[in-house]
């Protein structure tokens, strides 16, 4: 799924990475616990989260993710956006709740990922 499609489906705002909206993600992970995200291994994934600290960006970087969506209308502080810019990530914000945001992406064809590194 193209990141621009995610923006349309979630009525999301772009906080950084405007030049990468044609990028494609193959799976998604909705989570506020970063160690659970780290147990999940698909590349080119999008992370949906309500957590707004720098560890969200570092976790996304560790997992080679392309895009972070902050849900429930949360906006990360500027230092988090700066870190994401440096890492070349697209950062979006949506007013949708986690469950709804994940559901909209899922029914439009974006699968979840497998857990573990088998």
């Amino acid at each position: 799924m193209k990141i621009s499609t995610i923006i349309d489906l979630l009525h999301a705002r772009v906080l950084c990475g405007e030049d990468k909206l044609d990028g494609v993600v193959n799976s998604a992970c909705g989570c506020d616990m970063m160690s659970d995200v780290l147990a999940f291994v698909k590349e080119q994934a999008v992370l949906l989260t309500g957590l707004c600290n720098p560890q969200v960006v570092r976790t996304a970087v560790m997992m080679d993710m392309r895009c972070i969506v902050f849900v429930r209308g949360k906006l990360p502080p500027e230092d988090v956006i700066t870190l994401a810019k440096e890492a070349g990530l697209v950062v979006l914000a949506t007013d949708e709740r986690m469950y709804t945001a994940c559901g909209k992406l899922y029914i439009n064809g974006l699968a979840g990922g497998e857990v573990g590194n088998e």
Binding site: M33, M34, S35, D36, A39, L51
Partner: peptide, 11 residues
């Protein structure tokens, strides 16, 4: 803060 789920050492 997003940690303390008991997944650190297992990961």
């Amino acid at each position: 803060l997003g940690f303390g789920a008991g997944m650190g050492l297992p990961n």
